[in-house]
């Protein structure tokens, strides 16, 4: 599931990055509008911590607001501040890399592929607790292969 604000970010992004259309077209992704008072109140809580004048990070706010107002939902966000903001709130947070590790364990993805992806994430200024190539090494040492 993605909240309406993430869908809007994807639509804006798809103008320049055509591959994002794959997400918009995926029939297994459901778009949920954030329209209850609980949604909006939670959204405002995260906005206070994540959103500045340029309006970036609205998507993270939407994901966290949606997840905390649904039973058994897990929010997938990579921003560390977003993760910190969710602490003490009734919401479980996971990072993309966690999902990718699940996929490795289930044999859907390979370690080299995920390691390359992790390196890509780092290039986009995601701060990860290891350097380039570090994921593969860690996966090796911890028997993920």
């Amino acid at each position: 599931m993605i909240p309406d604000v993430v869908e809007a970010e994807l639509r804006t992004g798809a103008v320049q990055n055509d591959h994002l259309r794959a997400v918009l077209d995926a029939d297994w992704i459901e778009v949920i509008p954030l329209d209850t008072p609980e949604h909006l109140s939670a959204f405002a809580y995260y906005e206070q911590r994540l959103v500045g004048a340029d309006g970036r990070n609205v998507g993270e706010c939407g994901v966290l607001a949606l997840a905390e107002t649904m039973a058994h939902a897990v929010a997938v966000v990579d921003d560390r501040v977003a993760g910190n903001a969710a602490r003490g709130r009734n919401v479980e947070v996971r990072r993309t890399l966690g999902l990718l590790c699940d996929a490795i364990r289930e044999g859907l993805l390979t370690v080299p592929l995920v390691s390359a992806l992790a390196d890509d994430l780092m290039r986009d200024s995601y701060r990860l607790p290891f350097g380039p190539g570090g994921f593969a090494r860690w996966a090796d040492e911890n028997g993920l292969t």
Binding site: R49, L50, V51, V81, N84
Partner: peptide
């Protein structure tokens, strides 16, 4: 890391 750079600014 309680607020993002955008929010701090």
């Amino acid at each position: 890391e309680t607020v993002t750079a955008d929010r701090a600014l």
